[in-house]
Design a binder for these strands. Structure first.
Length: 880
RNA sequence: AGGCGCGUGGCUCAGUGGUAGAGCGCUUCCUUGACACGGAAGAGGUCGGUGGUUCAAUUCCACCCGCGCCUACCA
């Protein structure tokens, strides 16, 4: 038996002190470490490496806590839990943050500054243009800043009590991850899954990089239809409708629906663009919508994805006028590729556009189109009416500010379109929680339009481990890349020479050209399972841990992170990366809007931790079910804190009771334990299905309404009885057994307060120094219970409730003494309640009682027939 | 426009083929020796709408309405 002296304990749990103490103790005792030598079944978690872009918000706390509860449960179930943590530090979010923080821009040609200061830019520095720094310096700044950010994340994770094995920490830019990502690329290259090609690609003009389909989002944008008159060669005219008049110089054809009577006669003839006087073909296409605009449209290189398709299928010429910087490039009409019937006029018009951004060019060209002199044969201005405002969806890079353009560049792709079926099949093999999330995966995969563009024209990322031979003509041969030597990885082709070459041969005829691009960050983070399990570095370990058990993540990155991870596992090892995916919901602000930095509605977690304690914050996180978006509600935190306090106080009370050693013998105590056992089983079932919220609810309901409000009150008198030593032993033994079970039941959810309580004696008694290494409650805890009838407990509850109701109806307090109590119930119920009667009468403060047996009453129903309140003792007047 | 999810007391959310649940909030009462961050009692809902299946529907089916998300939609 455990006996504590509650005198030294406050009435409230000091969460702050406990968090510091236990975090230190856990880390010193390494209780969350994966045991590589253990033969126990592993439970392997593919923890999401958070993007360390600087700011934390409650959304982070939310989903990571949910995973932690499952990890803790599995650990208590005896699984050898593999729970790593990574940091996703490479990529655009970091670059953008570094640019702002230090007020710099990367300029690959800039000279390297060996003594670059790592200091936040001050206001004075921000007034000037951003400082240009070399690629090497820029990467240094990225590394320095992310190191700081990672510290903040790590501190939060530890305070939250995430039971991560910190010896498994990695970052997606560290040496091992770079090596692995390059290895992944070389493997795909060897197997023919990647290719590079010069083709129109989705391009962000601000970041000046290609992006992948998965990173594209539609945004509604206000635009306008411009109705522009085109002449037909040999006579005639028609009016096209376009929202992008600035692309008129890039017009390469005109198309209409083949069944459209208005334009049928035009097919096969040639149109002449206004202003630039370029003859273009007119062709029929089923893709044209007769109802939209004027039913006839111009095809440009490139206005949208359909333009790209027409350009390919109709073998149209290429007139790329928008440059990588989003400005109209210098082109000359009348020269190669830009024919014109009137080059002088065309170049005059184009002079108004060159060097301008798309937006500026649009404004300028509208003015040009209004000029009547631009018209052919005096037919009036080409712009036949005022622009007609419309709202339409435009593709943006999800992190970008200006619409994407299709720009012809050379990029590397991973072939996906020919593997859709097997990728869909892989998704079906994985268990999704909740199950309907698999539909998101399937829909996305079915709708894939493009292979995965994996090259980015950025700096802070993992370089492609390839070079290209340079011919005697000085041109690089991109179709015969020189792969890096696997043993030499990671390599940086911009500063290292390929095998068999010397640095002097860089960019020289007969030499080599180093690939300057870096991987899409998803290319690396989609390898998180391989990084954590050490894939080729430790093949034995990888075999043991892969495929993993669980991937937790949120739903908006199903199309990226989940999808690409499945792709990699498939292409590298023809398998699935994990058996289960648990999809967390979002945290919404109280108005049900998604929390986001840009909206300024973000709640930061630190003050919540200070105010309510980590356990309470966890309680809030764990109250939300998987896949369910949850409005942030501080009330739930208060409820969590109450639960923590209650647990603390109830434990203090229970462990302060003492009795002679012995076992649970009384029917009531046994009956109560049977109900507890059922609760444990139910919570276990919930957790097996990853339903941590259901388990918490079950545990909480039992703890509050069955344990503290009922059982503890009923046996209070007996637990300190001097006249009934056996009864006292039974009560105290049951209380302590129940508390030991309840503490373990709550341990995955409230790790701090449960560990604190455990340390009051359960640690020594059980031989498990930490509750988090103690076994999840099981049959072993309830030995000797056998088929005890829980009815005795139910009857006692019903009895107490009836008395409370009667007291309350008379305005008496629960503690009010009763001179007389006459109660009726069914005979069977009377038999059930009889052994508990002394406990119940003591709890109800009854002096004289009568229990009547009445056949007409239903089971467990108690009717208070007569109740006489005792005189209230005169309160001692101690006026303040 | 298609798909998925949701719509239950004032609020946040569970749940179920057979008299509707919790917490918060509200009302009344109680400072009892673990806990007032506590305890007892109570008020409050035609479970979005309309049909259908069924002895019985909040629960199953169909349609509709509202909200959210995903996908598509740059002429």
């Amino acid at each position: 038996m455990i006996t504590i002296d509650p005198e030294g304990l406050s009435s409230h749990f000091d969460s702050r002190a406990a968090e510091e103490r236990w975090d230190r103790a856990w880390s010193q005792r390494r209780i969350y470490d994966f045991d590589a030598g253990s033969s126990a079944q592993a439970f392997v978690i593919d923890t999401p490496p958070p993007t360390v872009s600087g700011s934390l918000h409650v959304g982070h706390v939310f989903s990571y806590t949910q995973t932690d509860a499952l990890a803790r449960y599995m650990r208590m179930r005896g699984r050898n839990v593999f729970y790593p943590m990574g940091w996703d530090d490479n990529g655009l979010p970091t670059e953008r943050r570094v640019q702002n923080y230090f007020h710099v821009r990367c300029e690959p040609g800039a000279t390297h500054d060996a003594a670059l200061e790592l200091r936040m830019a001050d206001d004075a520095a921000r007034k000037g243009p951003p400082r240009k720094v070399s690629r090497g310096n820029f990467i240094e700044l990225c590394l320095a800043l992310t190191a700081e950010d990672e510290k903040a994340f790590k501190a939060l994770w530890r305070r939250l009590g995430l039971s991560v094995d910190w010896s498994l920490e990695y970052s997606t830019i560290d040496r091992r991850s770079r090596r692995l990502a390059q290895l992944s690329f070389l493997d795909l290259l060897k197997k023919g899954h990647v290719y590079n090609v010069e083709a129109p690609t989705l391009w962000d003009v601000d970041f000046r990089t290609a992006v992948a389909q998965a990173e594209v989002e539609d945004r509604p944008v206000r635009g306008a239809f411009h109705h522009v008159r085109f002449a037909v060669l040999g006579g005639g005219e028609f009016t096209i409708a376009t929202t992008r008049p600035e692309l008129l110089p890039a017009c390469v054809a005109v198309a209409a629906h083949p069944g459209d009577e208005r334009y049928k006669a035009l097919f096969g003839r040639r149109a002449v663009t206004p202003l630039f006087r370029v003859p273009v073909s007119i062709f029929p296409s089923l893709l044209v919508d007769k109802e939209k605009g004027s039913g006839i449209l111009m095809v440009c290189t490139f206005g949208d994805a359909t333009d790209v398709q027409w350009w390919r299928e109709e073998r149209l010429p290429l007139r790329q006028v928008i440059g990588r910087d989003g400005r109209l490039a210098a082109v000359r009409f009348g020269s190669e590729g830009f024919p014109s019937l009137d080059p002088a006029a065309a170049n005059e018009a184009y002079g108004h556009l060159v060097g301008r951004t798309v937006k500026e060019a649009q404004k300028a060209i509208v003015e040009l189109l209004r000029r009547p002199e631009a018209a052919a044969a005096g037919a009036g201005a080409p712009l036949v009416s005022e622009p007609q405002p419309v709202e339409h969806a435009v593709k943006f890079y999800e992190k970008g500010d200006r619409p994407l353009e299709f720009i012809t560049t050379r990029q590397w792709f991973v072939r996906l379109l020919d593997r859709k079926a097997e990728l869909i099949e892989a998704g079906e093999t994985i268990q999704w929680h909740p199950d309907f999330m698999r539909t998101r995966y399937r829909n996305w995969t079915e709708n894939l339009q493009l292979d995965w563009c994996v090259s980015r024209q950025r700096y802070f990322g993992v370089p492609f481990p390839v070079w290209y031979p340079v011919g005697q003509d000085g041109a690089a041969d991109f179709q015969h890349p020189i792969a890096a030597d696997e043993a030499a990885l990671p390599v940086d082709p911009t500063s290292e020479a390929p095998p068999g070459y010397g640095e002097a041969q860089r960019d020289r005829p007969g030499g080599f050209h180093g690939e300057a691009d870096v991987f899409d960050t998803w290319f690396t983070s989609s390898l998180s399972p391989q990084i954590a399990t050490r894939w080729t570095d430790a093949p034995e370990r990888h075999r043991r841990l892969f495929p993993m058990d669980l991937r937790p993540q949120s739903h908006e990155i199903i199309r990226t992170w989940a999808f690409y991870t499945i792709v990699k596992a498939r292409l590298h090892e023809a398998t699935i990366p994990w058996k289960h995916v648990a999809i967390s919901g979002w945290v919404l602000d109280p108005d049900r809007k998604k929390m986001s930095k840009s909206k300024g509605n973000v709640t930061t977690p630190t003050h919540l931790l200070d105010q309510y304690g980590a356990d309470a914050v966890r309680y809030w996180s764990l109250s939300a079910r998987l896949g369910t978006d949850t409005a942030f509600d501080e009330k739930v935190l208060k409820v969590g804190r109450r639960l923590v306090t209650k647990l603390f106080n109830a434990s203090k009370y229970v462990l302060a009771q003492s009795a002679q050693a012995g076992s649970v013998t009384r029917a009531l105590d046994l009956a109560f334990l049977v109900r507890l056992r059922e609760t444990v089983e139910q919570a276990g079932r919930e957790l097996e299905a990853f339903e941590y919220a259901g388990a918490l609810e079950v545990a909480e309901r039992f703890f509050w309404s069955r344990f503290t409000d009922a059982y503890v009150e009923i046996v209070k008198a007996r637990a300190r009885s001097d006249s009934d030593p056996q009864g006292r032993t039974s009560a105290v033994a049951a209380l302590q057994l129940a508390l030991g079970v309840l503490v373990r039941l709550f341990a995955p959810f409230l790790p701090y307060v449960t560990e604190e309580i455990w340390s009051w004696g359960y640690d020594r008694e059980s031989g498990h120094a930490s509750v988090h290494r103690a076994p999840w409650p099981s049959a072993a805890d309830f030995e000797g219970l056998d088929d005890a009838d829980p009815g005795a407990f139910d009857a006692a509850l019903a009895f107490l409730e009836a008395v409370h109701r009667a007291k309350s109806a008379r305005g008496a307090s629960v503690g009010r003494h009763l001179r007389l109590l006459r109660v009726a119930c069914a005979p069977a119920t009377a038999d059930l309640v009889a052994p508990s009667l002394p406990d119940l009468l003591a709890a109800s403060r009854v002096e004289e009682h009568h229990l009547e047996r009445r056949e007409s009453l239903s089971p467990l129903a108690f009717e208070v027939v007569e109740i006489v309140l005792a005189e209230r003792p005169e309160p001692e007047k101690t006026e303040a």
